[in-house]
Simulated scan of single mutants.
Amino acid sequence: MSSESLRYDNNGKIVLGQIYNEPDPRAYYSTLRQLDYVIPDEAAPVFRELVAARRQMRGSPELSLLDLGCSYGVNAAILKHGVALDTLYRRYDDAQLREVDPGTLAAIDHEFYAARVADPHLEIKGLDVAERAVGYAVAASILDDGLARDLESGPLPPRDGEAIAGADMVISTGCIGYVTDRTLQRLIELGEAGEGPPWMAHFVLRMFPPEPFDAMFEAHGYVTETLPVTFRQRRFASAEEREHVLDNLSALGLDPVGREADGWYHAEFRLSRPRKDAEELPLARIVRH
């Protein structure tokens, strides 16, 4: 990836928007592989522990997740279909699959994922602004269902809300900070009007201040817990990107030593739940680090 061609957003991150809404995921996986993007693998063991805990509290194996910022369904591929991230990287770099058109690839993927359902009691729906990415993940049977909408601009119409209602847990591995507390509040309100308030399980880059989210969660009777460790997201694409992030962290009073100073984005894990659930089963008893 040539540093001369990189553009940066207001947060100092390189702009990769061109890979997130292609007709198929080949450019997405090819680009992120170059950056050692690992957060879905880092997050998976935590999500699996939370799925087990949520099932225990509900007394049922049936569970519904909503993946916020789902893109092409990478979290669903790992959690529901049991496909490792490295396998996904190698799959979409396969010489034969590189040559087919997007429609043919979606048909091939449909057979691949439909035959690999590691957790048949886990339903995973996706929500993302990238219409083609969500559409591909649904067509390829990676996601059970998906919706391409922007909750930052307004609430969902009733029909759209019905499509993603009933989630027991909302998960994400990188979109928080780009979506604000407005989106999360609308998802909570959707749950409150339906099956009940969902757990919120998010991996959040450290450069995004948590206070606006914490205040919103508290207003809805949620308690937020964090793990005492951080999780790698990806390597910095350039020295300039690294300096942007270190400046952001300095402004927040955060020490990058052993984390971002070593060349990687780092994320915190934040679990927000209704107070009753948090008191009955604290995060420290679900995920041990």
Rank of each mutant, 00 (worst) to 15 (best):
D145I: 00
V83Y: 02
G126P: 11
L122F: 07
R259D: 10
D94K: 05
D93H: 15
A239L: 12
F231I: 00
R242Q: 15
Q34W: 00
K80I: 06
L6W: 03
V51T: 11
A237Y: 01
T31K: 13
E111Y: 05
I108R: 15
H110E: 14
Y178R: 10
L127M: 01
Y113Q: 06
G258L: 07
L147T: 05
A215G: 04
H244R: 06
F208E: 03
E218H: 11
F231W: 04
A77F: 01
D36C: 11
G258S: 09
A43M: 05
T230G: 07
R285C: 10
K13Q: 09
V204S: 06
P282M: 08
R54H: 04
M57A: 14
V46C: 13
P197T: 11
T31F: 04
D145N: 13
S2W: 01
V245R: 05
G135N: 08
L105V: 06
L246T: 01
A278T: 15
R275P: 00
I188F: 07
R33K: 13
R242G: 10
N75M: 15
L79M: 12
I108Y: 14
D67C: 01
S172E: 08
E4K: 13
G12I: 01
A237Q: 01
K80E: 09
D9I: 02
P198F: 04
L32G: 04
R234I: 03
D262L: 07
R206I: 00
G135Q: 01
G135P: 04
V74T: 15
R90I: 00
D214I: 09
R26K: 14
V15C: 11
E279S: 08
M169Q: 12
G258M: 06
E240S: 09
G59V: 10
L63V: 05
V100C: 14
A163H: 03
A107I: 04
N10I: 08
L190H: 02
V15Q: 12
S172G: 13
L281R: 14
L68D: 01
L187I: 06
H266K: 06
G73I: 00
V51Q: 10
L66A: 08
A267S: 14
L281H: 11
E111Q: 14
V170Y: 02
P157V: 07
L249N: 02
V46E: 09
G103Q: 14
L190F: 02
R116T: 05
L283E: 09
M169V: 09
R33Q: 13
E268D: 15
E241K: 04
V15W: 01
A140T: 06
L156I: 02
E123Q: 12
T173Y: 03
A284G: 12
A53M: 06
E42T: 05
Y37F: 15
A115F: 02
F213Y: 15
Y222Q: 08
R242C: 10
D86P: 00
P256E: 10
H81V: 07
K276P: 00
E152P: 08
Q233E: 10
R54I: 15
E131R: 14
A139Q: 08
G174C: 04
T183C: 12
K276L: 12
C175Y: 00
V245E: 09
S64M: 07
R275Y: 03
